[in-house]
Amino acid sequence: MSRHLLEKALWQLSVERSAKQRFRDDPDGFLKRFNLSDEEKRWVREFDVGALQAAGVNPMLTMGFWQELSPDRSMRRYKERLGASGEALNSFSAALKKG
């Protein structure tokens, strides 16, 4: 079940300092240890949180992964990647203001 392995990878990337560093240094090398399809590895490598959630990954993990490792950590961009637009993107929240 890929959802489970995706969650295992994202959980490690959210909480384990050494995993975060390995991913920063060599994303493909880090992901090689998980029996994921090429497409699933791409979702992780490209921070495609929408695809990850569509695959069943817990949103708490996608958010933690994004906040820990995505290039700009913008929560506005995070919501865009989930498909938000217009008013939904601009809805006032402290989390979004940070982004």
């Binding site: 959630q53 817990n58 949103p59 708490m60 993990l61 996608t62 958010m63 933690g64 919501k79 989930l82 498909g83 938000a84 939904a88 809805s91 006032f92 929240s93 989390a95 979004l96």
Partner: peptide, 9 residues
């Protein structure tokens, strides 16, 4: 809503 597209509602 935590980490979902509705976050902020």
């Amino acid at each position: 809503w935590v980490g979902t597209v509705e976050m902020g509602q």
